[in-house]
Computed example of a mutant assay.
Amino acid sequence: MTSTRHARILSVLSADGEATVEALADTLRVSPSTIRRDLNALDAAGLMRRVRGGASIERDPVSITQTAVQQRAEKQRIASAAAAEVRDGDVVLIDIGATCALVARELRGRKITVVTASLAVVDELREDDDLELIVLGGAVRKNYQSMVGAFALQALTQIRASVCFLGTSGVQADGSIHDSTPTEVPIKQALLDASERRIVLADGAKFPGVSVARVAGPERIGMLVTDDGADPATLAELRRAGVDITIA
């Protein structure tokens, strides 16, 4: 268990450059004191650097820039293809995450209703007079720019949406959708419950990505929008389960 936690901590740091003790504890579903011990051990081994309130890791700036540009382009293509699935008059549920926020940007000026718990989506759409924006209430999670909790879940039980766009941290070999933050899972499941069409957004890096908590099996997904970096075997499994695949 310790070695697995250490590997996952390093994976998070490699992706983000730094992380707080609280964020890592939430992601890995362990106590902050356990994370502090893990970080001290990894720091002593020279694998990362312990900083006040968390940890950081050195990364190659050139590699980071190239990866960021590449991922941004892939996410943008996915967002554009996903937004094309929205029809005028639709009620659209949008999950948290960078690709979901890009979908929101693509939907500016549309005659639709958008419902979200993502602060990033709110930032993209709050000045748009053409669409109606409904913000789910709840406790604000600043690290994830999201709102979670009973208020958001209760609100979602009153909504029937035309389509939802769901983010994910990992698409597993059996086609199931996972998330790296268990706190977000009930919201994601409620988004699926409230929607007629269910579209998952996942770039190739999400195959298999990070898996902490299972959100849903492939039977609950109508469409996956991804790029040509997605694992072919996993895509085949999704197709067998009846999921439509769009390669952006």
Rank of each mutant, 00 (worst) to 15 (best):
residue 3 S to L: 06
residue 6 H to Q: 09
residue 7 A to F: 01
residue 11 S to Y: 01
residue 12 V to W: 12
residue 24 L to Q: 04
residue 26 D to Y: 01
residue 30 V to L: 01
residue 36 R to T: 04
residue 38 D to R: 04
residue 40 N to G: 14
residue 40 N to L: 12
residue 43 D to C: 04
residue 46 G to K: 13
residue 54 G to T: 04
residue 57 I to E: 02
residue 58 E to H: 15
residue 62 V to M: 04
residue 63 S to L: 11
residue 63 S to R: 09
residue 67 T to C: 02
residue 68 A to Y: 03
residue 71 Q to T: 04
residue 73 A to P: 02
residue 82 A to P: 10
residue 90 D to L: 04
residue 90 D to E: 02
residue 92 V to Q: 03
residue 97 G to S: 09
residue 98 A to G: 05
residue 101 A to R: 11
residue 110 R to M: 10
residue 110 R to H: 13
residue 113 T to L: 01
residue 114 V to E: 00
residue 115 V to I: 07
residue 117 A to C: 09
residue 117 A to I: 02
residue 121 V to R: 07
residue 125 L to R: 04
residue 126 R to L: 09
residue 128 D to M: 13
residue 132 E to T: 11
residue 134 I to T: 00
residue 137 G to M: 06
residue 140 V to M: 10
residue 144 Y to F: 11
residue 144 Y to H: 10
residue 150 A to I: 06
residue 151 F to G: 00
residue 152 A to H: 03
residue 158 Q to W: 00
residue 158 Q to F: 00
residue 159 I to R: 02
residue 164 C to V: 09
residue 166 L to T: 11
residue 172 Q to C: 05
residue 176 S to I: 09
residue 176 S to W: 12
residue 176 S to K: 14
residue 178 H to R: 13
residue 185 V to Y: 08
residue 189 Q to G: 14
residue 189 Q to L: 07
residue 189 Q to W: 15
residue 193 D to P: 03
residue 193 D to T: 14
residue 194 A to E: 15
residue 196 E to R: 15
residue 196 E to H: 14
residue 197 R to E: 13
residue 198 R to T: 10
residue 205 A to N: 13
residue 205 A to K: 15
residue 206 K to N: 07
residue 210 V to K: 13
residue 213 A to C: 08
residue 214 R to D: 06
residue 217 G to V: 03
residue 228 D to Q: 15
residue 234 T to S: 11
residue 237 E to V: 08
residue 237 E to R: 11
residue 238 L to N: 09
residue 240 R to F: 03
residue 240 R to W: 00
residue 243 V to C: 11
residue 244 D to C: 12
residue 247 I to G: 14
